[in-house]
Design a protein around this nucleic acid. Structure first.
Lengths: 192, 192
DNA sequence: CTGTATTTTCTGAAAATTCTGAAATTTGAG
DNA sequence: CTCAAATTTCAGAATTTTCAGAAAATACAG
């Protein structure tokens, strides 16, 4: 691997981590190299840095593009294609979450919905449906939260995340302010 | 696979999904079977339902236990060991997040911290460190949010998630209430 | 302690995946 | 259009993962 030690350490770790996700090691490494690169790189730059075959890099880049995690760029006066990751790391995370949702959550949600429509034939199926219903509700709660929060501009999102659970206390205070003294505390609704 | 159609569909899907995570197909299926089971199951029950080898089930259960995703239970007057998933699906998700954090995020954070301590030798390394710093800050923001929110009881958590981004508006209102008219709007701080 | 039920570990075979070099295709300059 | 540079596809080799069945270990009743 043709990289300074610090870069190499990062790339190796990222490769390992990648393989704990569905992504294979090389694809993870390609991404890491692009992430820390000073300029967009062409495929042969990556070959040189990682010491893997040209075809392997080609496949890896194709995979990363299918995830929208790398963009293809033109360098003036150069016929080759160059690749880079977005500079904005928040944008990267948004993409990552979006894509994983699309590939893992959405299909699961449709599966669950479909199975919940069926009439259970046995007590075993009836019980299974009850469990599936719990799972479905939780996933809906989470995806609705995500869909909502995902619309915020980064600045707002950071604000929200920084607050963490303090939000709950803040809202209690607000509730107290707007609730008739002695009346029942107005509960927050549970819709998206 | 010896299961009613509805259960089988769920188990198969879960197995597929499992293999997109690091988990292998059979382990995913074992989990699914336990998740929808009416009672705790012993290893042979799982063998019968999934039609895989006894040894495979043994390995799979061991793996799931290492993730704290299944618990081992005793059935009165039976020498065999039985397994089940927690009833509370929120608890399940908490465990899942906790374990993934432990295995993926925490090691990444230490790696990043370590590399950020090093003195960059080349401009290339200097630039890499800048990128690593961005990544480190974002991960810290997210894990701090998680650490904070994770402490909430489920009821509160649901409340918080249900609100989604409406929280931001609510807080703006609160800010307005407590800000001196004409003064600069007090910004919310960015610490955990 | 003995014998049986149960679980775990081990081993090699089968399956899946990752990866490479070669061949085929695409792209664009001249 | 022609040619060379660049990229992609492909077939099979190398590697890794998964899996079943055998063997070993463990637990426990009597």
């Amino acid at each position: 691997m043709n990289l300074p030690p610090l870069c190499e350490a990062f790339v190796l770790h990222f490769g390992e981590m990648g393989s704990r996700w569905g992504i294979n090691r090389t694809v993870g490494q390609i991404y890491a190299v692009l992430f820390i690169a000073e300029h967009p790189l062409c495929a042969d730059d990556i070959v040189e840095r990682l010491g893997v075959s040209r075809s392997n890099v080609s496949m890896g880049l194709k995979e990363l593009q299918s995830w929208n995690l790398v963009r293809q760029r033109q360098v003036h006066g150069d016929r080759r294609e160059f690749f880079s990751t977005p500079d904005d790391i928040y944008a990267i995370v948004r993409t990552l979450v979006e894509e994983r949702k699309k590939r893992e959550i959405d299909p699961t949600l449709s599966m669950l919905r479909e199975l919940l429509m069926q009439a259970p034939g046995t007590p075993q199926e009836r019980h299974a449906q009850a469990r599936l219903k719990d799972m479905h509700e939780l996933i809906e709660l989470l995806t609705n939260w995500y869909a909502d929060v995902q619309k915020l501009e980064t600045e707002r999102l950071i604000q929200l995340l920084s607050l963490g659970s303090k939000v709950v206390k803040a809202l209690e205070m607000k509730d107290r302010l707007f609730t008739v003294p002695g009346g029942k505390t107005r509960s927050t609704n549970h819709n998206s």
